[in-house]
């Protein structure tokens, strides 16, 4: 592979990997607290992208109930992304209320909670399809609206070309990562989250309101999921209501690779899988979508607790 192409692919991989990382963090946060994988996370990711589209004041297509509708106002892209994330966070909290809390209060089998989150995912994806149709949407071009060049050249004679969008995506995901790490490690709520993840009953005895913290967890998880959705939509386009499902399944591979419940593991796993996909040789590009799942198999075989995961202690 040509050196220039290699560098470009590495940059692409980092941008995609950064998004995988923040998306997978949403799974990880919920998993570390509840020990359950929230299958609705992929649907929240999709919702985030659609919300951002709506907040931009853009018009919806020709199919579905909301055909040709648009919000009476539009906000600039950075603000729309933020609003989209917040709206996705609110939906995520609602999902917790409807599909998680009733089962948790009854002390139900975690398997049932998993199934009910799958049900929520199916319902949300199809509500989206019902409302705005199955067609692809793309955001108005950022580079034109912000007046920046579509790509950056590095080097002189044979420059390395990098899409500006990739740089934006990578920087935004890094900022989100830093904020999230700060939130988890240095704020009171974050420390309470870690305590609840360690031992829910003891932390409740010590005066931590676990139910409220679970709501916070779902909100943060939905927020970062929604922002990840917008970033992916920015990079390619919103390819339809199902685009979060495929992404959500890859996110599972990311968290298993990093180690279930490990925050730095999710980041590392995201970057590794992003880079792995970007470095697939051109003639095998059709198999790119299988990379994450092949990695998942290998991890299960070789090191089931993931790169940075802790060994699970079997409790009776």
């Amino acid at each position: 592979m040509d050196f220039n192409v290699l560098i470009q692919n590495v940059f692409n991989g980092l941008a995609v990997g950064g998004v995988y990382a923040i998306f997978a963090l949403g799974y990880t946060l919920v998993f570390s607290i509840l020990g359950i994988i929230n299958f609705a996370h992929g649907a929240v990711f999709t919702l985030g992208a659609y919300f951002t589209y709506a907040f931009l004041g853009a018009r919806f297509g020709f199919n579905g109930l909301l055909a040709n509708q648009q919000l009476p106002f539009g906000v600039p892209f950075p603000l729309a992304t933020l609003f989209g994330g917040l709206a996705a966070g609110v939906i995520s909290v609602l999902i917790e209320r409807v599909a998680f809390r009733p089962l948790r209060n009854r002390g139900a089998d975690p398997l049932l909670t998993l199934v009910s989150s799958l049900g929520v995912a199916v319902a949300i994806v199809n509500v989206i399809q019902y409302l705005v149709g199955a067609e692809a949407y793309s955001y108005p071009s950022l580079t034109i609206s912000l007046g920046i060049p579509p790509s950056v050249m590095l080097g002189g004679e044979r420059p390395i070309v990098i899409r500006t969008v990739q740089i934006i995506i990578f920087s935004v995901s890094m900022v989100v990562l830093v904020l999230l790490t700060y939130f988890i490690n240095y704020t009171k709520v974050g420390k309470a989250l870690q305590a609840v993840a360690e031992d829910q009953i003891t932390s409740r005895l010590l005066g931590i309101n676990t139910d409220r913290l679970i709501v916070v967890t779902f909100f943060v998880s939905g927020f970062v999921g929604g922002i990840a959705g917008t970033l992916v939509g920015l990079s390619v386009s919103i390819t339809g209501p199902y685009f979060g499902i495929a992404f959500g399944l890859k996110g599972l591979a990311v968290i298993v690779l990093g180690g279930l419940g490990s925050v730095p593991g999710a980041v590392l796993g995201g970057l590794v899988i992003g880079l792995g996909e970007a470095l697939v040789p051109a003639q095998y590009v059709g198999y790119k979508d299988a990379i994450a799942f092949a990695v998942l198999f290998i991890v299960l075989l070789v090191r089931p607790r993931g790169i940075l995961g802790r060994t699970l202690v079997q409790k009776v």
């Binding site: 089962l103 799958l118 049900g119």
Partner: peptide
């Protein structure tokens, strides 16, 4: 007729709860 998958999803949630 169009929203039967929504019905499926909701049924799964109601069923499990």
């Amino acid at each position: 007729s169009d929203g039967r998958w929504i019905v499926y999803g909701v049924l799964i949630v109601i069923g499990t709860i």
